[in-house]
């Protein structure tokens, strides 16, 4: 059996499976229960993200504050580095993207 035949047979089998296996769509009541559960999960996820954000913000702030007190030069150097390196990275990224787009066209 060559590739085409085997895919043709496999596709037919899958079509049969789709046809034979009964649908399982939940009832309206079950769906409303599922949505309620999902809502609780969504709220939980939101609070976890919020707490994580605050913890990271506090830690970053504390680190920056202590570094700026002990070694202010580090802060100044990192700011200069960021202002000079970030535009270069952005330009390089933009150029590679443009080249890719040209290739696609």
């Amino acid at each position: 059996m060559n590739n085409k035949d085997s895919f043709y047979e496999l596709n037919n089998k899958f079509k049969e499976i789709d046809h034979v296996i009964p649908n399982r769509t939940p009832s309206d009541f079950q769906i409303s229960e599922i949505i309620l559960e999902a809502k609780i999960k969504k709220q939980k996820k939101f609070y976890i993200e919020l707490i994580t954000f605050f913890i990271i913000a506090i830690l970053t702030l504390a680190t920056l504050l202590s570094v700026s007190i002990v070694m202010p030069i580090v802060i100044i150097a990192s700011q200069i580095l960021a202002f000079s390196v970030v535009p270069l990275v952005f330009i390089a990224y933009k150029r590679s993207n443009n080249a890719k787009e040209r290739l696609v066209k």
Partner: peptide, 8 residues
Amino acid sequence: ASLYKRYF
């Protein structure tokens, strides 16, 4: 719920 029914 409509999307859920449609795509389940």
